[in-house]
């Protein structure tokens, strides 16, 4: 029976390893996640629709997705620049800077949140510079964008960097020999090669930003309709014992996350095929 399911191998432990993997995966991830969908199924469709389309909820989607998109775009641009500088140029402190790029992965989000808030507040080191122009960053939607930019910073750098490192210099040399300017070489030779990786990094940064909570709630100010993100709204509903409302919103977020995950997998598959 097992023979049709898997190819024969002399190695032992398949049943134990796969059995444990599936059990653990089901208990920790799949069953609890299905709870969200099953609880939501208790609502009728009009009830569900009414919950997930109230003006306050729609405003939170707009902020969450708008700020995430803006942050991911900024990260795509600057992440590409940072990856380029780290791969192509030599300058003092490069190794330390390279290691520090991963800081947003390693630094707890609550720490990032309070640090960014104190910096970008009107009396903070950076917020002070913008204050004379009447630009407030902390406690506005702009603050949400700042936090999400921090959180998503490593993704594009780390997806583009290896592709740039593996690029054959012959292609650029050939382009130069054929009379291409540096800009033409970048636009027609280098950029098409790194584009799938760039897009993957962008999608990863966006997906991460959409679900982010810890760093945002400190800097956002959390005003309903203005600077309230969807994950915070889920917690607010939960604290009011509105389980149905919280779960309905969670299902909307989960479906969007799964679509993004699917998209990222397709992008990575495309990226590998292009590289091969």
């Amino acid at each position: 029976m097992a023979a049709t399911f898997r190819q024969h191998s002399v190695l032992p432990g398949f049943n134990l390893a796969l059995g444990f993997t599936l059990l653990y995966l089901s208990l920790i991830v799949l069953l609890p996640l299905s709870a969200a969908f099953i609880r939501t199924a208790e609502l009728s469709w009009p009830e569900f629709w009414a919950i997930v389309t109230t003006p306050r909820v729609v405003a939170s989607y707009r902020l969450t997705f708008g700020a995430s998109l803006a942050a991911a775009l900024v990260n795509a641009l600057f992440g590409l620049l940072v990856a380029w500088v780290l791969v192509r140029y030599r300058f003092p402190g490069k190794r330390i800077i390279d290691a520090l790029v991963d800081l947003p992965f390693a630094l707890p989000t609550a720490v990032a949140g309070i640090a960014l808030t104190s910096l970008y507040a009107a009396n903070g080191w950076i917020g002070r510079l913008f204050e004379p122009f009447g630009i407030k960053i902390a406690f506005t939607p702009l603050g949400v964008f700042v936090a999400l930019t921090f959180i998503g910073l490593p993704f594009v750098v780390r997806t583009v960097q290896p592709v740039l490192e593996d690029m054959e210099s012959e292609l650029e040399e050939a382009a130069a020999t054929l009379g291409a300017s540096r800009w033409q070489t970048f636009g027609r030779v280098i950029f098409p090669t790194i584009f799938p990786a760039l897009l993957t990094g962008f999608a990863l940064a966006f997906a991460r930003a959409v679900g982010e909570y810890g760093s945002v709630i400190f800097i956002a100010g959390n005003m309903p309709m203005v600077s309230e993100i969807t994950p915070l709204l889920i917690i607010t509903k939960l604290e009011q014992y509105d389980y149905a409302g919280a779960t309905a919103l969670a299902v909307v977020m989960l479906v969007i996350s799964f679509v993004l995950l699917l998209l990222i997998n397709l992008l990575q598959w495309w990226s590998r095929r292009r590289a091969a």
């Binding site: 909570y213 810890g214 993004l260």
Partner: peptide, 19 residues
């Protein structure tokens, strides 16, 4: 499926256990 927890918002990760 193993990657799924990476794409789920932390808030939802907490919520499902409350459910």
């Amino acid at each position: 499926l193993i990657d799924v927890p990476f794409s789920v918002s932390p808030v939802i990760a907490g919520l499902i256990y409350v459910l």
